[in-house]
Design a protein around this nucleic acid. Structure first.
Lengths: 195, 195
DNA sequence: GTCTATAAGATGATAGAC
DNA sequence: GTCTATCATCTTATAGAC
């Protein structure tokens, strides 16, 4: 029962974030106490405050990291080319990225309402940036005359919702492989805008 | 400050449900205390227990009512006809119904994880019933040979996610009218399945 | 039907020992 | 770096007065 005193800062920090993300996704930010997180990590509640100033900041850091990763990852794989090719690539990227980290995606969306106003504003700005990447593709397709969408903003929101929705049902090791799911969603996305 | 004792059972009951739904949607089930609900309603916390045995049942009743209403409402408007016509009608119904009650939709989806196992099972069953209404239309379109979808289950989930997503951005009195939004989503849904 | 008072326990965060 | 102990407050739910 008793736990040895010792130095684990390089392990405990990441573990706290990992455990917190998982618990926030499963039970919700407000339903998870600092004691629950600490217990799962294997430390006492007081020790958490060596790694985060408070619970709110812990949530905000998790959400900000997720959004930063998302933007950085797309930045690396983004391609030039026709709007059609770019949309297909965005759909495949989005699906793949979201399938790989369901907890982070869930928390980043569901816990927005638990952010303090200043933190909310920052996360919303990152989200807006990401959405505008897709909207630019949709607009390019309109300009090229190959997409049939009456409103680029609405089409963007519809596409993102459709693609993100994969996380409500996809489970690793299920009936379909990740690649199959990516294929089907990418085709539906292209058809939805009339490409 | 002091509040008169009096008889308000026919007003207080619905008010509690109304206030609870709104607060749960804004702040989340776990973040909303019985005292907050009572305070907003204008009664003391103890009085809530005349209308619900406990907080969990209050949540469950709100979610169950929503799902029952959803199924009953579709039952009334459901049409016969081609898969194309039925899908367009489903899309318009779904969009309209969801736009009218964003709080209930949000709670019914976001607070699933706060339901006790037995309650979760019941709500999931109602959700499954609703999804199967759409899947039947998708399958009919496959049989008729007018829909191009490799997997009816995946297409169903993608369509529902796309349509429900309207609630992430639509606000009454915004740039587009409800009818315009319905039109555009219905057309995107049809195109997404290749109709 | 509603109130006040209360039980029994959980919560976020801090101080100081080691 | 972590623990134990603690503060002040909040939590759900109930009992009994009116």
């Amino acid at each position: 029962m008793a736990r040895k005193t010792g130095s684990h800062s390089n392990i405990t920090g990441p573990r706290i974030r990992e455990v917190a993300l998982s618990l926030f996704a499963q039970q919700g930010f407000a339903a998870v106490s600092m004691r629950k997180i600490a217990s799962e990590v294997g430390v006492q509640a007081g020790a958490l405050y060596l790694y985060t100033p408070d619970k709110q900041t812990l949530l905000f850091d998790l959400m900000q990291s997720h959004m930063d990763e998302l933007l950085a990852a797309f930045d690396i794989v983004e391609i030039a080319g026709s709007a059609r090719a770019r949309l297909e690539q965005f759909a495949r990227f989005h699906i793949g990225f979201h399938m790989e980290r369901p907890d982070a995606v869930f928390v980043a969306y569901m816990e927005l309402r638990n952010l303090e106003p200043a933190n909310f504003t920052k996360i919303e700005e990152l989200r807006r940036q990401y959405e505008s990447l897709l909207e630019n593709i949709v607009k390019a397709g309109q300009v090229e005359g190959i997409f049939d969408v009456p409103d680029s903003k609405l089409a963007t929101m519809a596409l993102i919702a459709m693609l993100t929705g994969v996380n409500t049902w996809y489970r690793e090791g299920g009936r379909m492989s990740r690649a199959e799911v990516e294929d089907v969603y990418a085709q539906m996305a292209l058809k939805a805008v009339g490409a």
